[in-house]
Design a protein around this nucleic acid. Structure first.
Lengths: 349, 349
DNA sequence: TTGTATGCGTTATCAT
DNA sequence: ATGATAACGCATACAA
């Protein structure tokens, strides 16, 4: 258990140091550790003793140089504080770990520069592959620089017109339908729909599903997938001349927006669900604690992460052996009815 | 922009491929890219064209082999879904990125096996250093295997009797005092204190602070730092023969426990803060959305992550030049008063 | 059962 | 201004 006291660090031992101390060749050291060839009990004992004494651990980059792979993969997310992505991360990590892969979690903060710097990890082969769940539509350029060159799987978002990349997403359209039908069944005839960024397939599909399922009139507002945006959009609407204009329900593009809506309602002195029913999307942890607790469309986030990672590791292991076939997984969503939705009473003020 | 269509991947280009295509030596390629030596404009142009054409990016592990370092660091956390750690991660990542380091986020799920596997990342020099915020007391063995050999900084938790390791934590004791004083000022004379794991310095210090500041009688219950534990402990107490035994307030060891307490109260038909005031610790995102919103002691989580990473990168860059001096940073906490605490009325039932 | 020598892709050293 | 070659730490083909 030799370790330096007092702070000055010692150079890590190399395989040569171990071999010298044990009085054998580096080949024997290598094979003792890998078990790929028989080693005499005496040699093995000497090697193990030397390894312990020096605290030797093989340098990964030297191994990688041989094998060409690092057995580490990455997951790109836009915001790790969003519970939806945190849960995707958990699913991805569990599977990666099961498969003997390490997982790097990369948080882009929706910053293209940072995203780009993380993409360099795969270009420089620091990692073997990547699950891209950055919650944004990567530019065609970025996509092209990766496609066909490195193992990449998309999660959460998917892309129209790109057939050669595997993706795992929830069934956003079905979720929108669920939300629309739910509000319709509660007797609502006028609703506000808060949508996310217009370039995101997920946002588009949710909206489309809602529009197809909700028979009443819909007021549309577009914003960002966060609480501040949800709050601002509703506050703006309330403050406008026509106000909510008879709307008795809101379908928020995701839970964060819905949380913002709840805040805006409280600030405006309106009550949920009495004055306005609210439906979110995702089912993040906060949704179970709000007042009232949020009715929402649950995405199987953990499963999305898990599946995406399954595909990725599959692609990596069959890497250059055979052309890979793109998959498109659609996972089922589920309506979680809680307190933020109720029967439509009279039109709000 | 050459990329393979149809799935079969091409071998990444090496520096030799670039040199051959450009009609120069690998030395010139290397220097063109690194800028460490002058290269004629013609050579440079030829090299750049070849690099673009082949999509060449230097293999990181080959560089690492030379330099011995990877310019990547890691952050170890127990649960990325806990907003407290997510925020630490954000702080750590922002600073790492600013300093030109990549950050690997490692989620241990409080699993010692997984933690151990992540520690191998540093032992094998896949990363240059690590911020350990795993929310647990690492065994002496684990600690010894790292101390003095690799750059490690502790965040959130600290350790008694270990003088040669830098750590950055909030002032847990002061936080406990803040909570105790707050409840005392509201007129509470009997409180329940839910503590976290007894081997955690953070938990111990919070409890000690609370005990020193709260003049009344305190019922103590120990559990885990999660919602399920907080919920179970309070439910148990309520169901016991003596019930809450006159207690009008609860100090939960952290916010997750406090969220559990809120759930247990709702399930038992008790109201917060009317029947029971609740104070948490951390100020996670959920605390701003609960009903009522949670009074809590805010830790500067972002700053903790940022500071810890600052120290780590400092240690790395002065690595074997001079013996490093251990630091012990204590960051100030702040009481955030919201709706879950109120003047003590009569004792709950 | 063990050891020698080569190669992995890059940077650094030393020539030219 | 450029190039040949050693060196980094390991795995492995080949030799003994």
């Amino acid at each position: 258990m030799a370790h330096e006291r007092g702070g000055r660090r010692t150079q890590p031992a190399s395989i040569y140091d171990v071999a010298a101390l044990a009085g054998v060749s580096i080949t024997t050291v290598s094979h003792t550790l890998s078990g790929k060839r028989r080693v005499s009990p005496e040699s093995e004992a000497r090697v193990r003793r030397a390894v312990d004494q020096l605290g030797y651990v093989p340098a990964s980059f030297a191994r990688n140089l041989q094998s060409g792979s690092t057995h580490v993969v990455a997951l790109l997310v836009p915001d790790i504080r969003n519970d939806f992505y945190a849960l995707i991360a958990k699913g991805a990590e569990d599977l990666a770990h099961q498969s003997g892969y390490g997982l790097i979690l990369c948080n882009t903060s929706s910053d293209p520069v940072r995203e780009e710097s993380y993409l360099d990890l795969i270009r420089s082969r620091f990692i073997d592959g990547m699950v891209y769940a950055a919650g944004s539509h990567p530019t065609q350029l970025r996509l092209d620089s990766l496609r066909g060159r490195f193992p990449v799987v998309f999660a959460d978002e998917t892309f129209y017109g790109v057939s050669d990349v595997t993706s795992v997403t929830a069934d956003h359209y079905a979720g929108g339908v669920l939300a629309g039908r739910h509000l319709a069944e509660l007797g609502h005839t006028r609703a506000v729909m808060l949508t996310g960024p217009g370039n995101l397939v997920s946002s588009l599909e949710r909206s489309q599903g809602f529009e197809d399922a909700f028979p009443g009139r819909i007021v549309r507002r577009a914003g960002a997938f966060d609480a501040a945006s949800g709050r601002a959009l509703i506050a703006e609407l309330i403050a406008s001349p026509e106000g909510l204009d008879g709307a008795t329900a809101v379908f928020a593009g995701n839970d964060l927006m819905a949380l913002g809506v709840l805040t805006a309602l409280r600030e405006a002195g309106l009550r949920c669900p009495d004055d306005l029913s609210v439906v979110g999307f995702d089912d993040v942890r906060e949704a179970g604690y709000t007042d009232p607790r949020l009715t929402t469309v649950r995405q199987p986030a953990y499963e999305i992460g898990r599946q995406a990672m399954t595909h990725l590791i599959g692609e990596i292991s069959t890497h250059d052996r055979r052309p890979h076939v793109a998959q498109l997984d659609r996972l089922a969503v589920e309506l979680v009815v809680r307190g933020s939705t109720a029967e439509s009473a009279t039109a709000a003020r």
